[in-house]
């Protein structure tokens, strides 16, 4: 289980990243925390010809808050995300999610940018970003463009990122003092959830973002509306029409639909008790 050979280049500026992407095109992969990518390399599930290590790019680091918006650099590691006071204040949903992500050693290396760019549909952070209605900042030589989370996740491991782009940061409108909850059911500590729910209240409305139930993290607008109106049972019923979960080793689609309803009830209780 050794990776196929590849070349390796380190970038320290975004300009270098863009140069390298231009030179190597689709045969290159960006290496951030590497906690999914290096495993895929070891398993030879990925065999890029060159890895572009962006860990030294200072412009992709840091967490800041200005003008009511939290900006989280793409290279922010999960452990940093979980410990950051600005995140805890303005996007507590993310802080809640961090302890559910794998194990301490993984959280020390894995990055938010890597997680979002990989877009594993069972991962916590993509769903949180969706529930937070965050904006993803995509950088290329042409400059930055901003993509709403709902437009970013396009399919199984598919995102709006173009081959010449780097995910630079995530921007989130402050959710300070707004109730939120992260609920998930995983077989063991740190496992990907069978079903998970990131729920964020928002000025009388409610955003429910699900993970582990489809090809991408998903919002369920009808359930959101019902729950916002206080109709938990109605929201649970609505899920049947809004979720079409896959069958896998955990069980049939009905398992996930059932568990989603349970999580919805628990999320409603958690939000109420907030």
């Amino acid at each position: 289980m050794k990776p196929a050979p590849f070349a390796y280049a380190r970038a320290t500026t975004l300009a270098e990243v863009f140069d390298l992407l231009e030179t190597h095109g689709d045969s290159a992969r960006l290496l951030a925390g590497g906690q999914s990518l290096v495993a895929a390399l070891n398993l030879r599930l990925a065999s890029p010809s060159v890895l572009l290590d962006i860990n030294g790019v200072a412009a992709l680091r840091g967490i800041s808050f200005a003008d009511g918006r939290l900006r989280i650099g793409a290279l922010t590691r999960h452990a940093e995300l979980g410990a950051d006071p600005l995140v805890a204040q303005h996007a507590p949903l993310l802080a809640q999610a961090v302890p559910h992500i794998a194990h301490a050693a993984i959280r020390n290396r894995g990055t938010i940018g890597g997680s979002l760019a990989l877009a594993d549909p069972a991962a916590e952070l993509p769903a949180c970003i969706l529930a937070l209605e965050a904006v993803l900042v995509l950088a290329s030589r042409e400059g930055e463009r901003r993509v709403a989370a709902r437009d970013f996740f396009q399919g199984l491991y598919q995102t709006a990122l173009r081959g010449d782009e780097v995910l630079a940061a995530v921007e989130i409108a402050s959710q300070a003092d707004v109730p939120c909850t992260l609920q998930e059911l995983a077989r063991r500590h740190g496992d990907y959830a069978i079903v998970g729910l990131a729920a964020q209240s928002a000025r009388g409305a409610l955003r429910l973002a699900w993970f582990g139930v489809g090809a991408t993290p998903l919002r369920t607008p009808r359930a959101e509306a019902a729950l916002a109106a206080g109709d938990v049972a109605g929201a649970q019923a609505a899920l049947a029409g809004e979720l079409d979960p896959p069958e896998d080793l955990h069980g049939p689609p009905a398992l996930r639909l059932h568990l989603a309803r349970v999580l919805l009830g628990r999320a409603a209780a958690a939000l109420k008790g907030h």
Partner: peptide, 13 residues
Amino acid sequence: FTPARILTALGKI
């Protein structure tokens, strides 16, 4: 004894 099997036994899925 997975969640799926227990829920099936309980008639919930």
